[in-house]
């Protein structure tokens, strides 16, 4: 497949291009292109979690029950204040320790715990080996928690922005409380929430460049590997430090993703505005 594409491109551009084309389609580069999937999965799954946590956080924040309201405010205010990189490093490891703690309570015998005092986990059965995909899931959840806090704030504000008269009118027409919440408040809320959510999405999209911190072989890590200087012919093409070239490609990738996102949000906004009176 790739060979035939190269052939046709060489025919089109001339023989000088062959080496370059073969270089950017070698196995290492192909793995780089394929690693975009981690970025996309993290962004999309992270966004899904963020909306979920956002709705939950917003619902808690305006709950009639005071303790729930406190939990909602605590979540939104504390998590928003923690740098995303820090939380991103903290959460997966803390979660792993927590799971291992649960395992150690159920799987380790008392003798094992006594004989392995000081080492963690106390027995092999409680060991949780984190691998690439586990890290990816944990990364998505961390993104969800961090950006969910921002989304909760946006959604909470948007719910407040829904004209009170609309809800009163709905109530007057005999809709139940639940129906009023879902069919009027949440339905109309999107119009006000989308501009804010699009901001949160942009932040989340940019944060996907942190995946390599968790040793996920994402586009940033591969760009690093590909651009690193190589002086050993056996290891592939000999070249000096080319990282800036690869980072430049990543710049372009992220800018393209941003432009694409803007389009999608425009479309979503138009959809959310259907049947709504022009809001100003």
């Amino acid at each position: 497949m790739i060979e035939s594409i190269i052939e046709s491109l060489v025919n089109l551009l001339g023989e000088d291009w062959r080496a370059g084309l073969e270089y950017i389609t070698n196995g290492k580069h192909m793995m780089w292109y394929a690693s975009i999937r981690f970025t996309l999965i993290a962004a999309i799954a992270g966004a899904a979690f963020a909306v979920l946590f956002g709705l939950l956080g917003a619902a808690l924040k305006q709950s009639a029950i005071a303790p729930l309201r406190w939990i909602g405010s605590f979540y939104v205010n504390i998590v928003r204040g923690v740098p995303d990189v820090l939380f991103f490093l903290f959460f997966p490891l803390a979660f792993e320790q927590f799971v291992e703690y649960i395992f150690s309570r159920t799987r380790c015998t008392a003798e094992e715990i006594a004989s392995n005092a000081g080492s963690w986990p106390p027995c092999d059965a409680a060991q949780w080996y984190l691998e690439g995909n586990d890290y990816l899931i944990l990364a998505c959840v961390s993104f969800g928690i961090v950006y969910g806090a921002f989304a909760a704030n946006v959604i909470h504000g948007a719910m407040q922005a829904v004209p009170h008269g609309q809800l009163e009118a709905a109530q007057a027409y005999g809709f139940t409380k639940k129906q009023v919440f879902w069919r009027f408040k949440v339905r109309q809320m999107w119009t006000y929430a989308l501009p804010g959510l699009s901001n949160v999405w942009m932040l989340l999209l940019k944060a996907t460049s942190l995946l390599s911190l968790l040793q996920i072989a994402d586009i940033v890590l591969w760009a690093d590997r590909l651009g690193a200087p190589n002086y050993l012919a056996r290891a592939g093409m000999v070249h000096p430090d080319w990282r800036w070239k690869y980072y430049l490609v990543l710049f372009v990738f992220y800018i393209l993703m941003t432009m694409l996102s803007e389009r999608v949000f425009d479309w979503l906004q138009r959809r959310a505005n259907r049947g709504m009176v022009e809001v100003n």
């Binding site: 070698n26 196995g27 290492k28 192909m30 793995m31 590997r225 690193a228 050993l232 056996r234 290891a235």
Partner: peptide, 17 residues
């Protein structure tokens, strides 16, 4: 995987060395 010629990633993206 980044310490040629001991261990490195070759142009096919595989560990070698």
């Amino acid at each position: 995987g980044a310490y040629a010629p001991w261990n490195f990633m070759d142009d096919n993206g595989k560990l070698a060395g």
